[in-house]
Design a protein around this nucleic acid. Structure first.
Lengths: 212, 212
DNA sequence: GCGTCTATCTTTGTTCAACAATGCATGCTA
DNA sequence: TAGCATGCATTGTTGAACAAAGATAGACGC
């Protein structure tokens, strides 16, 4: 089955797994051979990834793995603030998908104990995607997932997955707690401050790495 | 210049202008001939439009102009509520882009006087895109623009552009007023109720048209 | 040595022709 | 009329080919 979606997924997996590092050039010829598809088919997949922001396309210079700048990081956190906080604030209490949030946090805690930071990051992404899923909007969830995937490339770029994610496991747990026992609005406020802290940490890592 | 972006734009223009109606099948062969590009190039453009939600792709059955269902409309309005209201609520007072909002409303009023409802709709889209531009986030603006373009297909589907847009010109003006003279939060609340009314009207039109 | 210019090479952009795979329509059979 | 088989049209994918733009490297003058 060489359906395009499958090819897009295979490429996305590699990107999120960090096998293809931010900034890496993606040669059409070599990747086509590697995935055993034609150049044309690969290019169709590239368009999708480009639209999702995972890949940067420069005319006549090909595509490369997106390498988010600090400006991109700021932009991404703006999206996160607006989307995540608004969704959480207006979420009904006891939305069934809160279970997904909880499951993601527990998964993150498990992987953190194993010091498998890549998977901690994946679980963290799942947590925030679960938050947005409280909106019951497929479109919002999809767009947001794209933005989060792009943010993961930012993490991979500065290569500091551990301490960026570790402190937030407990804070995510608290968000669930407040959402369940106090109010969605209070949880949204809490999440907002956490996002602000997270953004600051990422930008700090960028500054230390000397990256633009 | 047969750059893909240009092809995507040409296709998007046709979609938004209503030349290609929702549900219309887009034959690769005939469109390739019409735009004088190869099938492969056209297919790359289709991927982009599919990712943007303007076009529906069913394997081995080709692409057709997206024909939003009532469920899609509801989903789209969920996005609108979360994004537009959140952005407006947290927008700084006197954001320079408020001028864009104002310009869009005046354009809409002008076209309404000419009873050019298609352009009124375009101006209305511009207004709401301007609202989201207050977030200063390119990503949010892009994703939102895609969703609005999809919503326009919903309008075209039920073919009632006039009364769907007309009443909202004045209400948009009021939103600007409140944003400027009262507070962004109050403006966001006002916009929220307007969006609710708008959604109800569109769904009503769907019901009358007997569309799913 | 250094920068610049040009020639060459590599990669992308696009087209075309071919064939496989799938879905659709037609007409046949019962 | 319902169900089925056959043929037809469209999409999915490939490979080769060439044009076009950028990257590289060597020659040249200073």
């Amino acid at each position: 089955m060489n359906h395009d979606s499958s090819l897009v997924n295979r490429l996305t997996d590699r990107l999120i797994a960090g096998e293809l590092r931010p900034g890496d050039r993606l040669s059409e010829a070599s990747l086509a051979k590697e995935f055993d598809v034609s150049r044309n088919t690969l290019r169709e997949a590239f368009r999708v990834l480009g639209e999702q922001g995972l890949v940067t396309h420069i005319p006549h210079r090909g595509v490369s793995v997106a390498s988010p700048s600090t400006a991109d990081v700021v932009d991404i956190y703006r999206v996160r603030h607006h989307v995540e906080c608004s969704v959480l604030e207006h979420a009904p209490r006891n939305h069934p998908n809160a279970a997904h949030m909880e499951a993601a946090v527990e998964a993150a805690a498990k992987f953190a104990a194993e010091e498998n930071w890549l998977e901690v990051g994946t679980a963290n992404m799942a947590f925030h995607n679960a938050v947005v899923s409280l909106s019951d909007s497929r479109r919002l969830a999809r767009s947001f997932a794209n933005v989060l995937a792009e943010l993961r490339l930012a993490f991979l770029k500065v290569e500091v997955l551990d301490f960026l994610h570790a402190p937030f496991i407990e804070r995510n747990r608290e968000v669930i707690e407040v959402y369940r026992n106090e109010s969605p609005a209070a949880a949204a406020a809490k999440l907002g401050t956490y996002l602000g802290d997270s953004e600051r940490q990422v930008l700090g890592a960028y500054a230390r790495a000397g990256q633009g």
